[in-house]
Design a protein around this nucleic acid. Structure first.
Ligand SMILES: [Mn+2]
Ligand SMILES: [Mn+2]
Ligand SMILES: [Mn+2]
Ligand SMILES: [Mn+2]
Lengths: 214, 214
DNA sequence: AAATATTTTTAGACAAATCTAAAAATAGAT
DNA sequence: ATCTATTTTTAGATTTGTCTAAAAATATTT
C-alpha cells in the first residue's frame, strides 16, 4: 500500500464509526481533496479488495480493509504514546508527527515498539490501541454532556484531538484521569458546573460534548 | 525536500567522501536508477542550490547541500541507535528501517530523540552522528589491514555495513569494542592472525580492509 | 411527477519521478 | 589528430496522484 492509499483507508475507517456507508464527498472532505480524486482512489482500493464499492452507492470497508486500517491506527497511536511518554512531547503536539510515522513499514518495528512502551491500551488522547491482531479492548465511555446532575467519573478520553482543543483543556487543567462530577446542569444553554479534582469549573455544552468519562 | 530529493542528496554526500566531483553514473548506480533519472534530479537539486552543476561536468555539494545531507545522515544514525539500544534490534537489521525513518520531518522530534538516547556520538556501526548544528566529532580511525604486526586497538567501526558482513562479524564474535591485536601478517595473501579479546582468530585481507580500529 | 439541486463520475490535463531510445559531448585508443 | 568507446543529456512515454470542467446519476422540492 502506498502512503496515499493508507491515508484514504484510515479516513474511511474513522468515518465508519459514525456511518454505515461512506460517501465520496465525505472522504474527499476529510482528505482535503476533490471528489474526483476520491473516486479515483476508491476504485483503486476496491480493485485491491479493501473496500466494497458500487458506483454512486458509496463504500464500506471489507474485512481485510478493516484489518489494514486498524494496523495503521495501531501504528499511529503507538507512536503517539512514544512521543509523549518517552520524548516528553505534549499531547497536542504529536498528531502531525504520528501522521508521518504511521506509514513506516515494518511489523517487527511496531511490535517491538509496542513491547518497549509496555503494551499500552490507550494513546495520549484516550483512544484505544489495536493489539497486533487488530483487537482493541474498548472500555465503555460516556459523553459528559449526556450525564445528569450528580453523576460523574474519570476523564478518559476526548472526541476532538485538535491542538486547539487540547491546549484549552491544558489551560483549564482538565487532564486525562481527572475525577469529574456534574454539580449543576443549566437547562438554558446546557452548560455545566463541574467538580474537577475538588475544584469548581464551568464548561459549555460544546466542550462537554467532547469529553469522555468512564 | 521530497523523499526522493533527500535520498539523492544523501547518496551524493556519501560519494563525496571518496570523490571530489560526483559523476551522473555514480549517482545513478547508487540510487539504482538510470543515468537519465539522475540527470533530472541533479537539475532539480541544482535549481534549489543544493549542488553545483555544469553539464557533463558532474556535481559537487554546496554548503547548504552538505548541511542538508548531514541532517538526513543525523536522522538516519540516531534512529539506528534507537532501534538497537531501545528496541533491541541487531545491528544488521536496522538499516532498511532507518532508511524510512530518516525522512520524518520534525526537527524537534530528532532533537528530542537525540537527548532521549543520551546524545550518542556514533551509530551502531561506528559511524559518527552529526550534532544538531551538523558538526561531527571524528575520531581518527585506522584500517586494520594497514597495521603492522604487533599493533592493535579497539574495533570501533566497519566500512561495510551490509547485513551479510555484519552477520559474519557476529558469527566470528568480532563485536564493536573488541580489543584486537595483530599477531601475524601473512606476506603471501595479506591475511592476518589476530588476538581478539584473548582469543586467536584469522581473517582475510578482504575482511581486514573493512575493520576500523582506534 | 416534474423540475431543480446535489452528489458522483468521467474526461482530459498536469506535476513528479521514473523509464527507453536516440543524440550529443567527453574520454580513451590508435 | 582521428576514430572509437563511454558517459551524459535530451526527447518522449509511463505511472501515480492530483486538478477542473462537464456529464450522468441520485436526491430533494414543488
Ligand atoms: Mn498519514
Ligand atoms: Mn491520538
Ligand atoms: Mn531513505
Ligand atoms: Mn549506520
Amino acid at each position: 500500500m502506498t502512503l496515499s492509499e493508507e491515508n484514504y483507508l484510515k479516513v474511511i475507517y474513522h468515518l465508519s464509526a459514525d456511518l454505515q456507508v461512506i460517501s465520496t464527498n465525505a472522504i474527499a472532505d476529510k482528505m482535503q481533496t476533490k471528489a474526483s480524486s476520491a473516486t479515483d482512489m476508491i476504485k483503486k482500493l476496491s480493485e485491491k479488495g479493501l473496500v466494497a464499492y458500487k458506483k454512486y452507492q458509496g463504500v464500506t470497508l471489507s474485512e481485510t480493509g478493516v484489518h489494514a486500517a486498524r494496523m495503521i491506527v495501531r501504528k499511529h497511536r503507538l507512536w503517539e504514546v512514544f512521543l509523549v511518554d518517552k520524548l516528553a512531547f505534549a499531547w497536542d503536539e504529536v498528531h502531525e508527527i504520528a501522521e508521518q510515522l504511521e506509514h513506516i513499514q515494518s511489523e517487527e518495528l511496531i511490535n517491538k515498539l509496542d513491547d518497549f512502551l509496555g503494551n499500552p491500551i490507550v494513546d495520549p488522547h484516550g483512544d484505544a490501541i489495536p493489539d497486533r491482531t487488530g483487537k482493541m479492548t474498548l472500555t465503555k465511555q460516556r459523553v459528559l454532556a449526556d450525564l445528569p446532575e450528580g453523576d460523574g467519573g474519570h476523564l478518559v478520553g476526548v472526541k476532538d484531538s485538535s491542538a486547539a482543543f487540547l491546549q484549552y483543556l491544558d489551560k483549564q487543567q482538565l487532564t486525562l484521569g481527572s475525577r469529574i462530577q456534574v454539580l449543576e446542569k443549566e437547562a438554558f444553554d446546557e452548560s455545566m458546573v463541574l467538580d474537577v479534582n475538588g475544584r469548581q469549573k464551568s464548561v459549555s455544552q460544546k466542550i462537554a460534548r467532547q469529553l469522555l468519562l468512564d
